[in-house]
Nucleic acid binder design. Structure first.
Lengths: 221, 221
DNA sequence: CACTGCAATTGCAGTGTGTGCAATCTTGCA
DNA sequence: TGCAAGATTGCACACACTGCAATTGCAGTG
């Protein structure tokens, strides 16, 4: 157990419960929801702490669970893979007003420009804290195995982009939705690279703008 | 053992040896080299056969080794992972005359056009048989786990491209080698997608040309 | 507050991947 | 033929991950 019993906690109030309560303002559901989220955070934090201390390969799932005070079986109810916990992967919903605007052909009517707007919007609302996100990105850059999983997680979202592009383009034979979606992935990926190289500073949309500008220059040249 | 003892084989001539002998014209090394390559092929073939018959998850390394007549321990001397055997991964050397030309600033002087030439050249000399390559790609398209590994293997080569781009560009502050290399990866990836969608028909360079044209249209629009 | 439906946690036993090590066999070479 | 280097193998083992059945905890109802 990790709990520091400094203040006399009310009986029955576990670490988990306190954490869940602390999340109350954010949580929109009942106690059940909050606890679930809290435990997820707890596990990811424990994982990061141990990996920082001992390195990825020296950390076992068992150790993580001991640190978090949870059974190993429960761990695998939260994450498919040990690596997923390390990366703190959470689905990143592409749906939004921006997505609907894009699918409808807006806002400008120029495919590339609108793609840039869409990606910028998605980049603006990450599903997890920015610090944790960049942390995951750094780890992935170092460990090839994690990179594979990171890319896979990333690639999972391509399907949503393909759907949006397809909706926008209809049956245009000159545009392959797969290729357009791949381009979107490239833009996002390159943006992340620059973002990471900048130490996580600045806004995603700005880095994205730079990448798009570079692409335009490359093609125009 | 799987060997069919139909014809009376000369004593001492195992399946492996015969296979190694068959590879003799291709092999440049001694018997040792040929046997090693032969065994590699043997294992990949066995893996493909079993995966085709029973599906990826139903095939164990043990079964593969039984089929190939090799100990499981040996299997892992050849491949880091079961998935690597399924995909038949082999490093794809980017170095070539085309690579040196590109690094030197040729052949046309236009970065994107020359990138296209470079990728086309690399695509023209795959390190393994084309049939096996497309087979691997199909498998990867179906199984998300394999896709991850495939992309990771793919991404491993980015370093070489970055080096080439850096050599070509020198210290141009307006061009980020990472971004250019990512673009190259995107072009290659999209080419593979089209190639696969076409059932493996046609030349890689042609599909690539189509992708580049689409990119130009997108940017110009 | 007692009661009940349902979700989450847990223990346990088992499968399969992948590794280190030492013994054994094969190949290349003198 | 005999020796040194390389490859294969068996064995023991750590670890990731899964299915199942039992238990615990939350939420809503009367």
């Amino acid at each position: 157990m990790i709990s520091d019993k400094t203040a006399a906690a009310p009986p029955g109030a576990s670490d988990l419960q306190r954490l869940a309560d602390a999340l109350a303002p954010v949580g929109d559901g009942g106690l059940r929801e909050r606890k679930k989220r809290a435990r997820r955070e707890l596990l990811i934090d424990a994982t990061h702490r141990l990996v920082d201390a001992h390195g990825l390969d020296a950390v076992t799932v068992e150790a993580i669970c001991a640190e978090a005070g949870v059974s190993t079986r429960t761990f695998f109810n939260y994450f498919e893979t040990k690596d997923d916990a390390v990366l703190g992967h959470v689905p990143w919903p592409v749906e939004s007003d921006a997505a609907r605007t894009f699918a409808a052909g807006g806002p400008s009517g120029h495919l590339l420009a609108d793609l840039q707007v869409l990606i910028g919007a998605v980049l603006g609302e990450p599903p997890v804290g920015r610090d944790r996100f960049t942390r995951a990105f750094e780890l992935a850059a170092r460990e090839p195995r994690l990179l594979a999983r990171h890319i896979a997680w990333f690639e999972q979202h391509k399907g949503q982009v393909v759907a949006l592009v397809r909706e926008r383009l209809g049956a245009d034979p000159d545009r392959d939705p797969e290729v357009v979606a791949s381009l979107a992935m490239f833009l996002t990926h390159a943006t992340f690279l620059r973002w990471d190289a900048a130490g996580g500073a600045g806004e995603g949309a700005d880095h994205l703008a730079h990448v798009v500008a570079e692409l335009r220059a490359l093609v125009a040249e």
